[in-house]
Amino acid sequence: MSAHTTDNGYKEMARLAIEKHGTSPDALIPILLEVNQEYGYIPVKALTEIKKHLNAPVGDRLIQEGHLFSLASFYHMLSLKARGRHIVLFCESAPCHVTGGRAVWQALQEQLSLSAGETSPDGKWSLVTTSCLGACGVGPVVVIDEDMYGNVTPERLPEILSRYE
């Protein structure tokens, strides 16, 4: 999360992302992924900047912020809401559920004092649910930022959470 959240920052970010991925329609989602990675979410202002660069019709359509917004709200890896410093992803799919996911979910919510989709007031944590992450062999699975934890139990949670500043 290094890009600047200033008007110029957004402009620069949009320019770089478009330089890297191009302006053809198949570049739209890669561009959004790039912005999301940079800011941790997609600020609406960044959408406007991207749109400005794409103001020639893409394919047979003119790309408006609305379309970018629509994409960003469809794909779960893209967020339109600002998130906390650490994103806790909890896998709520069946394989993790039957191996004890439910108890972990209860404990997670209690220990973070958050429900699904919420960010803590101090901006430290965001708690997000996700569908299967393809690590079901070691369910229940919790991912914090880039680190994946398998075979999580409610008892292990405090130690895991304490690793994050």
């Binding site: 053809s24 329609p25 198949d26 570049a27 739209l28 989602i29 890669p30 959004l32 992924l33 893409v58 394919g59 629509s70 994409l71 469809f74 794909y75 779960h76 890896m77 893209l78 996700t130 569908s131």
Partner: peptide
């Protein structure tokens, strides 16, 4: 390589194609 962005339905082949084309899956 085209990266997905988090949508199970994009595994469906026509949704996948829509997604590559820069649309909702």
């Amino acid at each position: 390589i085209h990266s997905g962005a988090g949508a199970y339905v994009c595994g469906e082949e026509t949704a996948l194609i829509e997604s590559i084309e820069g649309k909702r899956g």
